[in-house]
């Protein structure tokens, strides 16, 4: 029966019906506590709905999965303008993947720590995958403008 629920969940996500998707996630989780994919989808649905506190609550209640949601939790705190709390999450990560670096740069920008923001963006720009990123270059320009 779980496979039928996951089919339903996938369809709801494809149709961007996130509230419906959360209801399906809850059905899965009632049968399969701490189900990885259902928990991930539930967190993401709340984030896509802009319900960041609900996403954080879901993460905090996710038991053994909690540690796998550090990026998502930091993003939710960032989106709730809790920049110092968000930074505590990202700085707790030892070897930072690029998505964490991107987020950390955004947090530092909001905290008006332009030096740190520039440092991270220059580090990312030195990687081949980012050298053509117009969005990253736009952000770097914004930092230089605000830094004066």
């Amino acid at each position: 029966p779980l496979d039928i629920l996951f089919k339903e969940l996938d369809e709801a996500i494809q149709e961007q019906q996130y509230k419906k998707a959360i209801r399906v996630c809850n059905k899965v989780l009632s049968q399969s506590v701490n189900d990885v994919e259902a928990t991930q989808c539930k967190v993401l649905c709340y984030m896509y709905l802009g319900s960041f506190q609900d996403a954080v609550d879901t993460i905090n209640k996710s038991g053994p999965l909690k540690d796998s949601f550090v990026f998502e939790k930091a993003y939710c705190l960032y989106s709730s303008a809790k920049y110092t709390d968000a930074l505590k999450e990202t700085t707790s990560i030892q070897s930072k993947p690029n998505n964490v670096l991107e987020l950390e740069a955004q947090i530092y920008y909001k905290l008006e720590n332009y030096e740190k923001t520039i440092e991270i963006y220059e580090q990312l720009l030195s990687q081949s995958g980012y050298s053509q990123s117009s969005e990253l270059i736009t952000n770097l320009c914004a930092v230089y403008i605000d830094a004066g």
Binding site: L9, D10, C41, E72, Q106, A142
Partner: peptide
Amino acid sequence: KPMFFDLAFNSCEFPSLENRK
């Protein structure tokens, strides 16, 4: 304020459910 993209949101992706369906 100058334009500033939310690059980190691009990494907020749903997991693949292919193996669960």
